[in-house]
Design a protein around this nucleic acid. Structure first.
Lengths: 185, 185
DNA sequence: CCATTGTTGAAACAGTCGTACCATATACTG
DNA sequence: CAGTATATGGTACGACTGTTTCAACAATGG
């Protein structure tokens, strides 16, 4: 008996909170402004998520879920050559529409360096869909279980993203990827 | 007339504040704990630096200055081959002793993504000594004023640092650099 | 109706933050 | 000595933080 629970409310809040975090970043996140933007109250956020830390964890999980989904939708066909796939992924991840996700990745990484205790599964949590991405390049590896080539490919992508987000110099970063493709041949 | 100013105090405070920031990170930096650790008071920090923001700016400038100095001291000789220089720089920057600097770089980068207004000269401030570093590889460029190859080299280093600081997997990241060296030949 | 369970608002708590204000101490000149 | 400039300590302000407490309201079942 009693009033039936409404799990949909928490889901809806989580989705909109994730939008908010992607738009405003993780660094200065505060319950009151977040609640105001979501049309709810800090009281309800804690009611639904228990604590700010748990809310953040849930938001990051949701963001990761979204990223993985969007990536799966936009992966170049298996049939394409490794180079075509690399170019496709770079074009996708470096597009302005992905900027909020990219920023969040760097924010989480930096926060994880200062507070590792908040990210118990940091290796998986942060690099999860980067690793998924890296698996795409397994066929340019030297041996079947070579993890080194995917690591290098991912490092180039991450490093160029660092550069691009800092300097905004798209031409130079695009050409650096071209150069890497040449080296891979 | 009057009591003579003591500029050395500000310098000493700046040096020790830089130590503190390198040890504790930028993210949660707060005047009271900082002052306590330095044996001074928030009052004096503001007296010497004007505001927290100006103090942070000064600390970052000092950290950058130190990084450039340490780098200059440890640069492999000009005579060495590009590959030897790349390996030397990787060994230097990825050493545990450089971890505080590396963390600070990633923290500043992430903060700059969220608050670009605090880093008016971000392209220079953040990438300054990375660019200095990149200049070291000018001779493996395809043309005299090629900025693309240094960009790629720096991206590999930054990307591998991201990976190493996240996963702690030194073996895999070291081998990824080996692989990059092979590609460069 | 009542009892029960889920939901929500308003307010307060205990703390931290950067910073400003006021007094005082210190070290120098004349 | 007085005069004057720098250097400090102490304190308080106003705004914020995550979280708790208490009360009320809503929707169900009996």
């Amino acid at each position: 008996m009693g009033r039936p629970p409404d799990p949909a409310r928490r889901e809806a809040t989580l989705a909109r909170a994730t939008d908010y975090v992607l738009a405003h970043g993780l660094a200065g996140l505060s319950l009151r402004p977040l609640a105001a933007a979501l049309g709810t109250s800090p009281r309800m956020l804690l009611y639904d998520f228990g604590s700010k830390q748990e809310l953040v964890t849930a938001v990051l999980a949701e963001a990761r879920r979204r990223g993985a989904t969007r990536l799966a939708e936009n992966l170049p066909p298996e049939a394409a050559s490794p180079e075509e796939r690399l170019r496709g992924i770079w074009a996708w991840i470096s597009a302005p529409e992905r900027a909020p996700y990219v920023r969040l990745i760097f924010e989480v990484h930096a926060d994880g360096l200062a507070h590792p205790e908040n990210y118990p599964d940091r290796a998986e949590a942060i690099t999860n869909w980067f690793n998924t991405l890296g698996a795409t390049f397994r066929d340019i590896a030297t041996t079947p279980d070579d993890t080194v080539t995917p690591t290098l490919v991912m490092a180039v992508i991450r490093g160029l993203l660092f550069d691009l987000t800092t300097t905004g110099d798209r031409h130079r970063t695009d050409r650096a990827l071209d150069r890497f493709c040449e080296l891979l041949r």
